[in-house]
Design a protein around this nucleic acid. Structure first.
Length: 597
RNA sequence: GCGUCUGUAGCUCAGUGGAUAGAGUAGCGGUUUCCGAAACCGUUGGUCAUGGGUUCAACUCCCAUCAGGCGCACCA
């Protein structure tokens, strides 16, 4: 990486200058906070180091410090200059050529790094209740989570992707009761949902989707259902047996639906962890025992409480309710402890911001159990607002809603994923459905995919036979498949001799656009590291847009075909590298890179 | 009230304490005998919510205030 190279060489130079006492009171060990970045203005050079922070230690003016350091900086083919306390670096052609060579050599692995050092990461996301279709908010976490997983794997982490199935508790009973009403309705029984909260409307899922589930159930169980109805004549008051049967059937269907949709949405989980099995295996009880033995629990008001406030939580939390059942938290504590027991060193959760109050108690439980709570990293994502006809629409399972499936049907997987990933998760995402439907051309993903398709088009044209329109004769291709392949092979390890032809031109625009494109390609490695460190896949989406911009600019001013043979070959190598980087970047986002559109 | 996220161009958003705060989109004006015009170029547009503080240097860090989102259960 060029940035690394410059940073190392500069640090060495500072050390040397300091050792010779040319930097005032600065000692060699003071020079740790180096800040290297692209220059704001290309006239200054390509990269710059701001050495102003050193002036505190050195007690010298930045300009003087830069002048003292400069003689010790020696990087082949890099021009060093000083402007206003910045040391600027202008890269020579050979370094730029090496950038392209590296991409072609590394190919699919360009950008891969070992930042994670094989750390075992459990990435948990989506984790929806199997009580209804996935909604658009789930879609955001699915898109962000799966691409974060790709990114972390690419950066050397050992990642397992897990979906925690919230298939226990009241909500599942509510699901069963709701399905029962739908089944009875299909049997033409007068059974309707409660309309007001006093009657208990919030304990039901009144969405239309259960109608289909009811029909599905009756396909094979009509007699059974009629028999159940005989023994349960009150629709709103079915027996436990009925509720159990209904909820088990409904959650099976819902879960399958979610699983299928996520796969279609290019979100692949390694494990699906069921909350119910956690109870069945006795893990929840074991956890309570463990906390009890550690003296972290106490009884109050006929309930059992966890002393989470001793570990930074606002207040203590109920572990076992007055009726003897466990809270959701209890199972979740057991679940997170189990993650650690399974050998994961880092637990990353993606949660909606509406769960943020929950972080402190899970952290507290990990600490109380004697583990390091810093292994838990919760990424809180702001919610998705649906905008329909210019008005914000509240989402909810209990009313008519636009599901993730609906959105994908309208916008497509590529568009939906890119849109969901594009923004930092810290900011609420406005999803304007009408805009996404009616003006899909404005979707940024097309801009990126178009650039990729354009590259592919040039490569296709380069090796295709041509027709001479004047005398209607066949012409040979600009370059044969074999020769193109040979060139790409040759460029590897030949220290950029082939690529020298990139710089033969006298056109400033050609040089400028070529250089900008190469620098953007080269920065991909650094980008991957930054976005992996900060768990921010949205940076990759932005990078794709920037690369597309740089390529289109290049394309406008620099012809690849119909130029001198050696220049064409060099440029074909360059755009091949562009294609590769697009492919790698879009691959991480789970967005396709079409050869043509 | 407490916690948390957000507030940057008309709109949607970037911005590791460092050079003149940037993109996209919308508006205006241009570009096609030639590799994909789903593209490109130019231009208009800013009290970085407000007020303090720290610093050689603040959109960035700290404090307060204002505005908006989301939480604050023996629900999950």
């Amino acid at each position: 990486m060029i940035k690394e190279l410059i940073s190392e060489k500069t640090a060495e130079a500072i050390k040397k200058a300091a050792e010779k006492s040319e930097l005032g009171q600065l000692k060699p060990q003071d020079a740790t906070e180096l800040f290297i970045d692209k220059t704001k203005n290309p006239e200054f050079g390509d990269y710059a180091v701001n050495i102003s922070p050193l002036s505190r230690h050195a007690k010298m003016a930045p300009q003087k410090i830069a002048e003292a350091i400069k003689p010790y900086i020696n990087i082949p083919d890099v021009e060093v200059s000083i402007i206003q306390g910045f040391i600027n670096f202008k890269l020579g052609n050979s370094l730029l050529n090496n950038g392209i060579t590296k991409i072609i050599e590394k190919n699919k692995d360009f950008g891969r790094n070992n930042l994670g050092k094989s750390e075992k990461v459990l990435l948990e996301y989506v984790s929806a209740n199997p009580t209804g279709p996935l909604h658009i908010g789930h879609g955001r976490w699915a898109a962000v989570g799966s691409s974060l997983a790709n990114l972390l794997k690419f950066s050397g982490y050992n990642v397992t992707q897990e979906f925690y199935i919230n298939d226990a508790g009241n909500q599942i009973n509510n699901l069963g009761k709701s399905l029962w009403l739908r089944v009875l309705q299909e049997l033409d029984v007068d059974a309707s949902f409660p309309q007001t909260e006093e009657e208990g409307s919030k304990n039901y899922y009144a969405g239309d989707y259960l109608i289909d589930v009811a029909k599905e159930y009756l396909k094979h169980n009509k007699d059974k259902a009629e028999e159940l109805y005989k023994n349960n004549p009150e629709p709103l008051n079915p027996s436990d047996e009925v509720v159990k049967k209904m909820s088990s059937f409904a959650k099976g269907i819902m879960f399958k639906q979610q699983e299928d949709l996520l796969r279609k949405f290019r979100t692949e989980f390694d494990t699906w962890y069921s909350e119910t099995t956690l109870h069945q295996k006795g893990e929840v009880e074991k956890t309570v025992e463990k906390l009890k033995n550690l003296d972290k629990l106490y009884e109050k008001d006929s309930a059992l409480w966890f002393k989470s406030s001793e570990y930074g939580d606002d207040q203590d939390r109920v572990i076992k309710k007055g009726d003897g059942s466990y809270t959701y938290l209890t199972a979740d504590i057991a679940y997170h402890y189990d993650k650690i027991e399974r050998g994961f060193e880092r637990l990353i959760n993606i949660w909606g911001a509406d769960h943020h109050g929950y972080v402190a108690r899970i952290r507290a439980s990990i600490e109380a159990m004697g583990k390091n709570p810093d292994c838990l990293e919760v990424l809180l994502g702001q919610l998705v607002n649906l905008i329909i006809s210019g008005e914000q629409v509240r989402m909810g399972k209990r009313k008519k809603m636009l599901t993730l499936q609906d959105l994908i049907d309208e916008v497509g997987v590529d568009g939906t994923r890119f849109w969901m990933i594009m923004r930092s998760i810290d900011t609420a995402l406005d999803f304007d459905v009408d805009l996404a439907k009616s003006c899909s051309d404005e979707n940024p993903v097309f801009y990126v995919q178009y650039a990729h398709a354009r590259v592919c088009s040039i490569l296709r044209t380069a090796t295709a036979e041509r027709l001479d329109t004047d005398n209607k004769t066949q012409l040979p291709p600009f370059i044969t498949q074999e020769e193109l392949a040979k060139t790409l092979k040759q460029v590897q390890g030949d220290k950029g001799n082939i690529l020298e032809a990139l710089w033969k031109t006298n056109s400033e625009k050609e040089i400028e656009s070529t250089k900008a494109l190469i620098l953007k390609l080269e920065s991909f490695e650094d980008l991957i590291q930054t976005s992996a460190k900060t768990r921010a896949p949205y940076m990759i989406a932005r990078y794709c847009l920037e690369l597309a911009k740089d390529f289109h600019y290049f394309y406008t001013f620099t012809r690849v075909l119909n130029v001198e043979n050696d220049v064409m070959k060099a440029r074909l190598c360059l755009i091949n590298a562009v294609k590769q980087v697009f492919s790698n970047a879009l691959g991480l986002l789970g967005v396709s890179a079409p050869e043509s559109m």
